[in-house]
């Protein structure tokens, strides 16, 4: 229970960075932090005390494994997270080219 709560605090730090920061790179960092928190939460939900990783090494023995389904979901989500982070940073790079600043308060007027 305390483990889950710490994970939620990590999520809230990421949300704080997204909502209140004015620097675009800091906002991207907030998104990545939220992604880590959610991935970690999935892995924590699937954990089983005293169990092994879900890989069969011997036939004909009773299997005591952790839950494989959250791991399978997170495995795809990690790679997607990298791709979306790269897309976000590309847009940030384009904004910097045009306005020469990362400060979202100064990016007000439309240009071009």
């Amino acid at each position: 229970m305390i483990v889950f709560a710490s994970c939620i605090i990590l999520f809230l730090i990421g949300l704080y960075a997204i909502v209140t920061k004015r620097n675009l790179i800091k906002i991207a960092i907030g998104f990545v932090l939220i992604e880590y928190a959610v991935n970690l939460f999935f892995a924590l939900v699937g954990f089983k005390k005293g169990a092994l990783a879900p890989i069969i090494t011997k036939l004909d023995t009773p299997h005591n494994f952790v839950d494989p389904i959250p791991q399978a979901l997170v495995l795809t989500a990690i790679v997607i997270g990298l791709a979306t982070t790269a897309l976000m940073l590309t847009v940030i790079l384009r904004i910097y080219d045009r306005y020469k600043t990362f400060d979202i308060a100064e990016i007000k007027r439309l240009k071009g």
Binding site: V32, A43, I78
Partner: peptide
């Protein structure tokens, strides 16, 4: 620690690439 070696391998290599991309963007700007 949570018995998920698949995730650990992917997370380590993806983390390296994330850092490389962030640093590339910061080196180009400020």
């Amino acid at each position: 620690m949570l018995q998920a070696p698949d995730l650990a391998i992917v997370q380590i290599v993806v983390e390296v690439l994330t850092i490389v991309i962030f640093v590339a963007v910061i080196l180009r700007t400020t």
